[in-house]
């Protein structure tokens, strides 16, 4: 414990003098640099802005390691995913499981997928499970808002 704290403080000390205050302590600052920073759309029928906001935060925490709305990374980009056929994002190399599954992403299919991806599409490379139904609801609302805001005609 003490060694971790010591290292952490040491890392702080590595920064330019006085930089701690410059860097700030609020999480709001964390929005400044992004991996194609998620931005939800304003129009998502049936979902409150509060739920979408919660979903946006959860998306970054739970999904952000592999996904971004506008960049194919470890996983495909997500803007426009809601309402589109699974496995169809242009430029992303899917597993056979996702290439062959005949599913359109909606509330029900996304809920089942996020709860247990390998059970939904055996062989998928997505092992991350989201067991909390409330978190799934919020993230799905956020994904839906991304699609509502999308004007680019993405194919996923």
């Amino acid at each position: 414990m003490f060694s971790l704290i010591g290292i952490a403080l040491g890392a702080t000390a590595l920064l330019p003098h006085g930089d701690n205050s410059m860097l700030g302590t609020s999480t709001g600052n964390s929005e400044r640099i992004s991996l194609a920073e998620p931005e939800g759309g304003a129009n998502s029928p049936g979902a409150s802005l509060e739920l979408i906001g919660k979903g946006r935060e959860l998306y970054q925490r739970r999904c952000g390691a592999c996904h971004s709305p506008d960049a194919n990374r470890v996983g495909p980009k997500h803007r426009g995913v809601y309402g589109q056929k699974a496995g169809s994002v242009e430029g992303f190399r899917y597993s056979k499981a996702l290439r062959e599954i005949d599913v359109v992403w909606n509330d029900e299919t996304l809920d089942a997928w996020l709860e247990n991806p390998p059970a939904f599409a055996p062989g998928t490379s997505m092992g991350f499970r989201l067991p909390d139904a409330g978190e799934r609801e919020a993230i799905i609302a956020y994904l839906k808002s991304l699609s509502a805001a999308s004007t680019a005609g993405d194919t996923e």
């Binding site: 971790l4 290292i7 952490a8 890392a11 702080t12 590595l14 701690n20 860097l23 700030g24 302590t25």
Partner: peptide
Amino acid sequence: AILANALGEA
């Protein structure tokens, strides 16, 4: 943890 501390996060 180290990065968050370095950035001054609580």
